[in-house]
């Protein structure tokens, strides 16, 4: 296939764009500075389409489409920010705030948490649904890292980065529904994991304060993700 044949033209929010056939709506939007919220998606990891925050409208369909996994198509007309979409996104994020105990004021990620930032961007001033206040554990058994389940949003980035990039597959999810938790090995303390390499990739892809490095104060716990595009690129070159 020639490059020209693989080019699609589409409209996003009434502006014309061209894109390569394999790209998703989210890719094109990002390249062109159009903001579409997302929490589970992270460039360099596989997409799961789970957070539902990147849902967009496509003309001709009543359904909503997750931008992170919907490939561009010729003549597509995408709306990324209608009143309706904003309403749904706010509700979804509010639900997420009710699920665990997200106390921003005493969080190591306060000020650089993706969920907190998104809440402000989506103009959430309060959560209308009742909080659940579940009892959630903090596992500080690892020498260098901590997992605080109070702040986990189950985006599964840690699971994916550990499996797809590091290759250890220390993390996975247990249970189902509202009882899902991230686990290491057979739901054993992280510190006693036989498979964890201690690389810390999971910590740095975590969008919230659920995974953090020990001994870091709030201002210091910046997540650094440069490794992800770098490793992806290096691997592509090798293949």
């Amino acid at each position: 296939m020639t490059v020209a044949a693989g080019i699609k033209t589409l409209k996003i929010d009434d502006r014309d764009f061209s894109a390569r056939a394999q790209e998703t709506i989210l890719d094109v939007a990002r390249q062109n500075g159009i903001f579409i919220p997302s929490l589970c998606e992270l460039k360099g990891l596989s997409e799961v389409g789970a957070c539902r925050l990147c849902l967009v409208e496509i003309k001709g369909s009543n359904r909503l489409f997750p931008a992170c996994v919907t490939p561009v198509e010729e003549g597509m007309e995408v709306t990324t920010n209608s009143e309706r979409l904003q309403r749904y996104r706010r509700s979804i994020l509010e639900l997420l705030f009710t699920e665990r105990n997200h106390v921003c004021s005493v969080c190591v990620s306060n000020g650089h948490c993706e969920m907190q930032t998104l809440a402000q961007k989506l103009e959430i001033t309060h959560v209308r649904f009742p909080y659940r206040y579940p009892k959630a554990e903090v596992d500080a058994s690892h020498q260098r890292f901590v997992v605080d389940h109070n702040r986990c949003i189950l985006c599964s980035r840690c699971v994916r980065v550990c499996d797809e990039i590091e290759g250890a597959h220390t993390w996975d999810l247990k249970g189902r529904g509202i009882h899902v938790r991230v686990i290491t090995d057979l739901d054993e303390p992280w510190g006693s994991s036989e498979t964890c390499t201690g690389c810390g990739k999971c910590v740095h892809v975590c969008p919230t304060g659920a995974l953090f490095e020990k001994g870091r104060s709030v201002a210091e716990m910046m997540k650094r993700r440069q490794f992800l595009p770098y490793l992806t690129l290096m691997r592509e070159d090798r293949e």
Partner: peptide, 19 residues
């Protein structure tokens, strides 16, 4: 006016709730 995180989210006082 609900002023501050404790009023808006229950914040730190709410941390007793799970127990």
């Amino acid at each position: 006016v609900s002023l501050g995180d404790c009023a808006v989210t229950a914040n730190v006082p709410g941390m007793r709730n799970p127990f």
